[in-house]
Design a protein around this nucleic acid. Structure first.
Lengths: 245, 245
DNA sequence: GGCATGTAAAGTGCATACAGTTTAACCTCT
DNA sequence: AGAGGTTAAACTGTATGCACTTTACATGCC
């Protein structure tokens, strides 16, 4: 049905295609955290062999969107609250860097592009949550891409996707109105060119997004029984183990 | 000859092993930027099939240590000056975050571990450059790993390796003495616990490492003819294309 | 009914085979 | 000898096959 058109791009790299598709499906919650991603199924779906599907999964795992355990089916990542908190902390620093580099340096065309994007966010406001979350995320990626610093672009994209995944996991009905307004404020401040001001603005923006979503260890919505029951299980008197990746 | 012992670890993941080996070879300049990495050769060297070697290369490419172009042999990455500059900028922010989280929170054991590492750096001071660069890099990674924030650890490691690669490319004889001293100062400041102070220290440290290495567009040492000749070629009147990754 | 156990199905880990592409060698013609 | 073209070798891209592991199910025992 939605078979990727192989001829659209001559020698196109198919693992990239699959990655993009999965990335999008994940952040739109078409694939919820914990969802299984068997290589066979992916391969069939995209009309490639397991080899390619597997490679794509490896890529996504490196980005933190997918969890890969030996001999087990790959699943969409389920970030813990702590990891989510860390991610936002790092994200704040990275995006401060983005706007610092961008302040006062945007062309008219770029500013228009940003405004257009926010307009799109506005229109999607009443649509499904997943879409507006995705658009909000893509706003930040768009911003990052304007730095033309490949590393920064990659890091911001990656961590923004992860935060996006987190938002879909933890957040309540999700009030995006204020976020959209904050995006507009950011654009204006960028145009005006006061680096310090726009850095502060970005800091505040991300901070409030994070706290709207992560208010005091909201337990993730449903999904894995062990996780839900974790807070009810008696901790065996020892300090909780420091399990990291 | 040095065939990896398959039985040493029962089900160990071999692509990880290869990644570690290559990473180390790269940052020690056993493999110089531009060096070819054919899948066959790697496979044979590590006693695995191309499948595995290829996967490892994909991983390394995602980390920016290897360049992968379609249908071409993978090569060790040759970061441009601009990318190197960007990398250091980002690194500074990330490592400021590291020490902010660590200031005043290190255990005695951890402090001892850090000191021990710097001692090792000291001993290697008169050895080959590559080794002391590697040790200096690993100091920062060790620091990051103490945050126990998986994301931060990954990002700092990754970017530190990339910077390390850059250093080996651009830097002159490399004066590591001062860097070592700065490491000691950092440890002391961390122990003392003044977050602001230690952030400033880290900032200054990385800044001076970067500028020692990257003073005004030092052209990379040798290697690729096209690169060397680039500044001598008449730019064809048009603004130079903005080629990014 | 509940629990253990064995067995088939599903899935991953990895090597290998083959097709297509790039690179290098060689050969020819001037 | 040098330029250009032609063929072989070297590699990569991808599919497929087989062995091993995990998971799900059904069967049997209590």
């Amino acid at each position: 049905m939605t078979r990727e058109d192989n001829r659209s791009r001559p020698a196109t790299d198919r693992v990239g295609t699959i990655c993009r598709a999965l990335r999008r499906a994940i952040i739109e919650q078409a694939l919820e955290p914990g969802a299984k991603l068997p290589e066979d199924a992916l391969g069939e779906r995209f009309g490639v062999s397991r080899t390619i599907a597997r490679h794509a999964l490896g890529q996504l795992a490196a980005e933190g969107l997918v969890e890969l355990r030996r001999n087990r089916i790959a699943v969409v990542a389920t970030p813990s609250w702590q990891v989510a908190r860390d991610a936002f902390d790092i994200r704040i620093e990275l995006e401060r860097l983005v706007v610092r580099q961008l302040a006062g340096r945007l062309t008219k065309a770029q500013i228009a592009e940003l405004h257009a994007h926010v307009d799109a966010e506005d229109e999607a406001r009443n649509g499904p949550d997943a879409i507006s979350i995705r658009l909000a995320t893509e706003f930040h990626i768009l911003l990052a891409s304007m730095t033309e610093s490949p590393i920064l672009i990659r890091y911001v994209s990656e961590i923004a996707y992860r935060c996006c995944l987190t938002l879909s996991l933890f957040s309540r009905p999700h009030s995006s109105e204020c976020a959209i307004n904050e995006h507009r404020l950011l654009i204006d401040a960028l145009a005006k060119g006061d680096a310090e001001a726009v850095m502060a603005l970005m800091h505040h923006h991300l901070d409030s997004v994070a706290s709207r979503a992560l208010v005091a260890q909201t337990r993730p919505r449903g999904r894995d029984i062990m996780d839900i029951l974790a807070p009810y299980a008696e901790p065996p008197r020892a300090a909780r183990a420091k399990a990291v990746g």
